[in-house]
Amino acid sequence: MSAVRFTEDHEWIRMEDGVAVIGITVHAQEALGDVVFVELPEPGREVTEGEAVAVVESVKAASDVYAPIAGRITETNSAIADEPGLVNADAEGSAWFFKIIPADPAAIDALMDTAAYAKFIESH
């Protein structure tokens, strides 16, 4: 299991056996508040970097979740569609959103590491 990387849109991404697992950060779920609905992409969909692929809605507002890297969606997490509150309870663990087979596995290295993301949050 490789280190977790982060985007400026507050997604986390972690490589597991050549597949990128993606979710939203603890910081993101805090900012959103109580998550009440999650819309996930169709597996098999080819996505580009930065493309809006999922939606997360709190009581107050809707937000897009973006693909941090280009590739093909292989799997989505039906558990969070059934129980959206999981996103608040375990954002960076069991409440992952989707998995992508990266078009370029090196693309993840360009994203922020834990320290850089912490700094990014602090400055925004």
Binding site: G33, D34, V59
Partner: peptide, 12 residues
């Protein structure tokens, strides 16, 4: 205040 630490759901 749009919400307090308890969150909108709990407050509601």
């Amino acid at each position: 205040p749009v919400q307090y630490p308890a969150g909108i759901m709990t407050e509601h």
